[in-house]
Design a protein around this nucleic acid. Sequence first.
RNA 1: GGCGCCGUACCCAAGUGGUAAGGGAGUGGUCUGCAAAACCAUUAUGCACCGGUUCGAGUCCGGUCGGCGCCUCCA
Length: 508
Amino acid sequence: MALRIYNTLTRNKRDLEPLAPPRVGMYVCGVTVYDYCHIGHARAYVAFDIVARYLRYRGLDLTYVRNFTDIDDKIINRARERGQEPAVVAQQFIDEFYRDMEALNVAPADIEPRVTEHIPDIIALVERLIAKEHGYVVDAAPVPDGSAPAGRDVYFSVRSFEPYGRLSGRDIEEMQSGARVDVDERKRDPLDFALWKAAKPGEPWWDSPWGRGRPGWHIECSVMSMKYLGHTLDIHGGGKDLVFPHHENEIAQSEAATGQPFARLWMHNGFVNVNDEKMSKSLGNFFTIRDVTARFDPEAVRYFLLTTHYRSPLNFTDGQVEEAENRVAYIYETLARVESFLAQTAPAGDGEEFEKVFARGDEPYRPRHEFEQALDDDFNTPRALGLLSELLRLANLLLDGKEQEQIGRKLKPPLRARLLAEWQNLFAPMQTVLGLGARPPAEFLDQLRLRRCCRREIDPAWVEQRLAERAAAKHAKDYTLADQIRAELAAAGVEVRDAREKTIWRVC
RNA sequence: GGCGCCGUACCCAAGUGGUAAGGGAGUGGUCUGCAAAACCAUUAUGCACCGGUUCGAGUCCGGUCGGCGCCUCCA
């Protein structure tokens, strides 16, 4: 069974065919570190986290590279605003990035290179492009204060690379008429882009054959991806907004330099929208990961991001994240119930396997197989979550002892325990691949309750106090008072559940 | 203007030409002192609209309407 992935370059799904199986090299464009990440960033890195986890689950030997762009105009501007060194700004937001990703349970990449640590490699590639006449050197634009420029600029000649535009499906001639490209007579073609930029006064710089300067935006990814993964990557990924010009330019630079295909498979995730419009810094309609995880459990954000296929647009609303948070709570409540049942009942019984007991007509029930089919099909996480939901429902069915309603017969508790133990094994890969439900259930549920108490300004001590009073009333068979207290708690957002031994509560 | 994507129930969302996953909300039920949770049942002869191909189309083709994206920094 092959893993099929949508390839932006060919506009269809292709089998993943690594150059040197089982090894797979994947490069994903990382963040420019000048600000907190927003939900759009979260989507991209959660999407590729699933890719990484699933490739490993499938037994592939993945090397995952994700860079940090730690030198760039925006970082320099931010540093200037704050009166800090650009390197300080960059380091701060690298740290913030890690905090966000950790909260979202996004595993680090294997290699996380930074642009500023690869300047000699970048210079070498620019020199190579100049030698092959794909790059050309021009005088830097005049400096506003009239002083002499510190170096010269190097541009890539788009017309020297015949296939330019293939990834994004556009034609150089047609783009000219777009008229939205700047006119700079130093460039041979308006679409030519900078490989190396002369330093302006007050900007960070590195010595180079073209004087003091710094890398252009696109060259870093060509350099760092090929350095760690070789000339041809198995997978190159990023957000849809990088298709043009960033990835187009990466292809041009890399293939012009090496003469080899740069990436076999291009994956691009869709946007996160707000009111059906793209969430972006420039539109100012973004929510940072920090904002959202302050209000909702980070795992709810992760779940929410997986409810839509990674290539489709995803509309962000509080209601959706709240719903996701309820689903995650359902996962952990089920896991907690399974744990507690198994702690009390010893499994026993043979020959009654999950796939037979819950057979669908003549077909055995094989959730793991279906799960793999879903992810094999271009990482279809919504389908995978659907299967997850079914599986959770079956666990609760067994826990309630209501399996008769589904399979037409009643099972003895030891056999139910055995099936639930098997259930845990079926569920485990879903936990590890999706990165959901992997925390200790009690810990999660306590945290969620605290978080929701904060959200609704409920004092847990007050709840406990009122519940004690209600227990006394119930004991005295004063149901009127007991129900009155329960109604009062419910009005505050506290849901009371009378379980067998004790009363538990949660916040909605 | 060029290129491209999308339009599935009240809401979110899968859907590989062959009887429309899953979740939320709603309704009925089981359980419960009553509830809540959980579970069971139920909710699209229908997939924006109009044509076409086919034994058969949400799925393929053409057109119409509506929404969005890229073409400039952007995950």
